[in-house]
């Protein structure tokens, strides 16, 4: 990996069924990820994906791009909700490049969007180069 290397953007589809499976696997029963009424009652535009679902997709993209390099840092702010419709899917695009390499660690620059809107703030991944 060299600074400036750009990875092929990855597109992921998220369905309500994925959120149900994730809630079970991650132990996160928050109904805002399953129930439209509850989500709206707390001011959300509808059922939203778990922020960690979206960050999990970033983890997938990083693993694929780097051939499974060891991740030493991963994180972001969840700045915009990813609204998942009752039918069909939300599409999340994860784009990335190598920002810098130092001391055996590569810092990746990431951009994560849904319908063209950035959904993660200051996403960051650092992997062993």
């Amino acid at each position: 990996m060299n600074p400036g290397d750009t990875f092929e953007p990855r597109t992921f589809a998220i369905t309500r069924a994925d959120l149900v499976a994730y809630a079970e696997a991650a132990g996160d029963p928050n109904p805002i990820h399953q129930d439209e009424e509850v989500a709206r009652s707390v001011g959300l535009p509808g059922v939203i994906a778990h922020g960690m679902y979206t960050l999990g997709l970033v983890g997938r993209a990083v693993e694929e791009w780097t051939g499974g390099a060891e991740v030493v840092e991963l994180g972001c702010k969840f700045t915009q909700p990813v609204v998942v419709p009752a039918d069909g899917a939300a599409e999340v695009v994860v784009a990335g490049s190598v920002k810098g390499v130092a001391d055996g660690l590569a810092t990746l620059s990431l951009e994560v969007t849904c319908d063209g809107t950035k959904v993660l703030g200051m996403p960051k991944a650092v992997v062993r180069a």
Binding site: D18, Y22, E24, A25, A26, G27, E63, G68, L74
Partner: peptide
């Protein structure tokens, strides 16, 4: 547990493979 977590993210977990980096959220959550 790891296979169910990976599958819910649309990924496949192969025995002996890497655990998804976001898996520790299970503990943190």
């Amino acid at each position: 547990r790891v296979a169910a977590f990976a599958a819910s993210l649309g990924a496949r977990y192969d025995a002996g493979g890497a655990v998804p980096p976001t898996y520790p959220i299970v503990l943190a959550f």
